[in-house]
């Protein structure tokens, strides 16, 4: 893939992200991409946390939040390092994560390479309501 195509693709991605979050004030701050050489992401690891896990906390200590444990109903929003949902998706399409208990939720995404190495991270906060789909757009940045 040429650099010009990558540049175009990244700018398009930024534009699409801007459109997607235009009506969703709960989606969190937009992160700006660094336009350098691209490494393909093989998969995205998505976790949804309760209100206790804000993005600054998760991104400040990402390793601690990559938990494999799913929250018990009584643990939700109670400062317990567990997740409400965990899915691994292929890059490209929008992924729907169902069965989320309503409330303030944090979505943490990790871009993984072909060897399961962490390439990038992103986080956004969103309000989930009963019977509704909350749209959130995550822009991942390089995991240093």
């Amino acid at each position: 893939m040429s650099r010009r195509a990558l540049l175009f693709g990244s700018l398009l991605g930024v534009a699409l992200a801007a459109c997607g979050t235009a009506h969703d004030e709960d989606a969190g701050p937009m992160l700006i991409l660094e336009l350098r050489g691209a490494v393909p992401v093989a998969s995205h690891d998505l976790r949804v946390y309760g209100a206790d896990a804000r993005c600054d906390a998760v991104l400040g200590e990402p390793g601690a939040w990559l938990t494999a444990r799913k929250c018990e109903p009584e643990e939700i929003d109670q400062l317990v390092r567990c997740h409400l949902a965990h899915v691994v998706v292929k890059p490209g399409a929008t992924s729907r994560i169902e069965g989320i208990t309503p409330g303030n939720r944090t979505v943490f995404a990790v871009g993984k390479g072909a060897a399961d190495e962490t390439l990038s991270r992103g986080c956004a906060e969103v309000v989930v309501r009963d019977g509704e789909a909350a749209a959130v757009t995550l822009t991942l940045v390089d995991a240093q």
């Binding site: 991605g13 336009l35 490494v39 208990t101 009963d130 019977g131 991942l140």
Partner: peptide, 20 residues
């Protein structure tokens, strides 16, 4: 609309590539 029965859902769109 999605789910129901005391549950909602989240449509997640990832809009970034990884840059190095």
């Amino acid at each position: 609309a999605c789910g129901g029965g005391g549950r909602g859902c989240i449509d997640v769109t990832i809009s970034a590539l990884r840059w190095r």
